[in-house]
């Protein structure tokens, strides 16, 4: 498959008062044309930082300190702000978790929508508005004309997320990054938004990078899944392969956390004990060691590489990849 977005050996560091920390290390994947990749993991696993590094939105304190990110072979890391601004919102666009706070409260929907179209597609004020209105209709907003004149406070969360999607798709991007797009919405609205994203993906041929911690969303949307833990990729596989034949204990833990209806009354909900270690307290060896039920001596001493287990299934674990000496595909710090 033709690679649209490549993220190679990326490490992201942030300057803090106590020196540099690296919330993302060893992230490596590629997104094909028309493909949907879901990145899953707990809070603090580095999913959001990864997407922000793709968008160049790390802020002043953060930077990609190792590796590179490229779009259609053009390296994004190290581009000037001006060059990056021609790509953001045009070739790569992004929607966020909280649609209520992601739109500017003092500007009309129409303004915020057409501003992006004018910037990237060079249209005049009128054409851009017409284009924006058409886009609103496309995402299922019937009263597009009057919504254009509304301010964000007058709309519901679901409507605002539709507006965000309209905005993100308005310049026909090659990649859409969706950072937990349904987390803040009602369950019924969630399904509508996911369906809309699927439709648009088919229509525009967009590749989607979906950040979520909801395994149901993964099953619904993704072609491939990347599991992140402690700032690195620990498993990557085709969605069916991952659900049925996952190899990393952390992935297993995540999947067991999905509550099942009728799986025995009164049973406690499954959970992975503990939490992700902070970047400044990463242990030597495997980063999951303290929460892993199968931890071995080797896990405490050596950092496992991301190994290919065949058919594009990659896993970073001493237990499940022991003995199989595939080619190494992950950096060891």
């Amino acid at each position: 498959m033709e690679a649209v977005l490549e993220v190679r050996q990326v490490q992201v560091t942030f300057k803090t008062e106590k020196g540099e920390i690296a919330p993302v290390e060893n992230v490596d994947f590629q997104l094909g044309k028309g493909e949907t990749i879901a990145i899953v993991g707990e809070s603090g696993s580095g999913k959001s930082v990864t997407t922000l590094s793709i968008m160049g939105l790390l802020g002043k304190a953060g930077r990609v300190s190792r590796g590179y990110i490229s779009l259609h072979g053009r390296e994004l890391t190290g581009l000037s702000a001006k060059e990056l601004n021609r790509i953001r919102g045009n070739d790569i666009s992004m929607i966020f978790q909280e649609p209520m706070s992601a739109l500017n409260p003092v500007l009309t929907i129409g303004h915020q929508l057409s501003e992006q179209i004018r910037k990237h597609r060079g249209l005049g004020r009128k054409e851009a508005r017409a284009e924006g209105e058409a886009m609103l209709r496309r995402v299922g907003i019937a009263r597009a004309e009057s919504i254009m004149r509304e301010y964000p406070f007058a709309l519901s969360g679901g409507m605002l997320q539709r507006v965000m999607i309209a905005m993100a798709m308005s310049c026909n991007p090659k990649v859409l990054i969706a950072d937990e797009p349904t987390t803040a919405l009602d369950v019924t609205i969630q399904a509508q938004i996911l369906r809309l994203m699927k439709e648009l993906k088919k229509e525009f041929g967009t590749s989607i990078l979906l950040i979520t911690h909801d395994m149901n969303v993964v099953a619904e949307m993704a072609d491939r899944v990347i599991v992140m833990y402690g700032g690195e990729v620990v498993e990557e596989a085709d969605v069916f392969q991952l659900f049925d034949h996952h190899r990393h204990p952390y992935t297993k833990g995540l999947l067991e956390c999905i509550p099942q209806i009728g799986s025995g009354k009164g049973e406690r909900l499954a959970a992975i004990p503990g939490s992700v270690p902070l970047p400044q307290h990463m242990p030597r060896g495997c980063r999951f060691q303290d929460r892993c039920a199968h931890v071995m001596d080797k896990c405490r001493e050596q950092h496992p590489p991301l190994k290919d287990a065949g058919k594009g299934h990659k896993v970073r674990c001493w237990l499940t990849c022991e003995g199989k000496e595939g080619e190494e595909n992950g950096g060891t710090p």
């Binding site: 001006k82 021609r86 500017n104 501003e115």
Partner: peptide
Amino acid sequence: RTARAKGLS
């Protein structure tokens, strides 16, 4: 962040 993600200067 949204405004920056849209590519505005």
